[in-house]
Design a protein around this nucleic acid. Structure first.
Length: 340
RNA sequence: GGCGGGGUAGCCAAGUGGUAAGGCAGGGCUCUGCAAAAGCCUCAUCCGUCGGUUCGAUUCCGACCCUCGCCU
């Protein structure tokens, strides 16, 4: 194939783009991909599922024809998926893209996937459905006691009010016979260190600063980063979320959900968690009127966007870029090309 | 116009003569194999207004305002 005429290895570095739902990151990723000769790798825990199209704002076939996309529609509703599978596939996708002489652009909103991709995951085994079902049926106190006995270090640190966490810890201990606390990647010390070979990051302190407002301060060399996070002013984002949700319903989210129900949507725990689908399923069960459901989906989406921001702020160290209402994806794309 | 119910946080809503439950929304946060998930914290110096009774009223009384329902 055509070897790239790109000047330096830096051009092959993956570019990471995180952002809240509806900020407009996908459009920008598309722009970047076209400018840099890149391919997009979705970092999205819901777009991996085939069939969840409208509600996950999956890239259109036109967009996918424009730029190659990866890690979308890779999983059937009958299958389960998790972070570990994700980072394995993402690693592979990135390498393949690079081997083609193209630029991997990882773009999405799933913070955990970014973090695991960057920092690794550890050796623990994946979930065991039967065991998990058994643990879920146990009294919570018994789980806590078991964790305390078999891994006091984990017991000390864990959120003892969060069943999900406790169950996973006990699950890993039972599955491996080893302590949970010894099987996780140590994110504390080496946090944020990119796994993907050549990826480069600056070492500024972790202040999530908006590029526009700071960055200067006499530093001649602007921090060079390949990891960006987009945000918008709350009102701006809210408007975009409203429009997006209205559009989803107008495009047939209810019909799509009804169809997915016939193909096992309710049996897939993860997919059933997806905002939009979950609420529509409830509506179809007669729990709520359509108009109320639409409003609810907007609220849930706003809350999700807020949690995403918290996650990105606290767990990741991206370069922050606040998108302006009047800024086009082209403008942002150009701006970022200058930054990298 | 008359009679009856009601006016408590952005919304819904409990409540007591002794100084304001809860839920939702909002804000903040935790986060390692279900993550668009799960969990945690926070949020009324004040109870329509003005008077009165009382040691003390959001709670009792009166007037007024607003509101819902019924009647004429």
């Amino acid at each position: 194939m055509v070897k790239p005429d790109l000047p330096s290895p830096i051009s092959h570095l993956p570019i990471l783009i995180a952002g809240q739902t509806a900020v407009g990151k996908s459009e920008i990723a598309l722009q970047l991909a076209e400018r840099l000769g890149g391919e997009i790798v979705a970092v999205d825990s819901m777009q991996v599922y085939r069939g969840l199209d409208i509600g996950t704002a999956k890239p259109s076939s036109a967009d996918r024809a424009r730029v190659a996309h990866h890690l979308i529609d890779i999983c059937d509703l009958a299958e389960s998926f998790d972070v570990a599978q994700y980072i394995r596939l993402a690693q592979k996708a990135v390498e393949q893209i690079q081997s083609r002489g193209r630029v991997p652009i990882l773009c999405g909103g799933t913070g955990l996937y970014f973090k695991a991709f960057l920092s690794g995951l550890g050796e623990a085994p994946s979930a065991d459905p039967e065991l998990r079902a058994r643990l879920e049926a146990m009294p919570f106190e018994a789980l806590l006691r078991e964790l305390h006995e078999r891994d006091s270090a984990a017991y000390e640190k864990i959120d003892k009010q969060n069943p999900r966490r406790v169950i996973r810890a006990v699950e890993v201990i039972r599955l491996t016979g080893k302590k949970f606390s010894q099987q996780r990647a140590r994110w504390g010390e080496t946090a944020g260190e990119p796994k993907v070979g050549s990826s480069r990051r600056d070492d500024r302190t972790s202040q999530p600063v908006f590029r526009s407002s700071s960055a200067e301060g006499g530093r001649a060399v602007p921090s060079i980063s390949n990891f960006f996070a987009f945000t918008r002013q709350p009102d701006d984002l809210r408007r975009r979320i409203d429009v997006r949700v209205d559009t989803m319903f107008a495009s047939g989210l209810v019909e799509e959900t009804r169809e997915l129900l016939k193909h096992g949507l309710e049996e897939n725990k993860t997919a059933m968690q997806a905002i939009g689908y979950r609420q529509v399923v409830e509506h179809l069960r007669g729990e709520r009127l359509l108009a109320e459901t639409i409003e609810l989906v907007k609220t849930k989406t706003r809350q999700f966007a807020k949690r995403q921001l918290t996650w990105f702020r606290r767990q990741l160290e991206p370069e922050w870029i606040e998108l302006q209402p009047d800024e086009s994806p082209e403008m942002v794309g150009r701006k970022i090309c200058e930054l990298i």
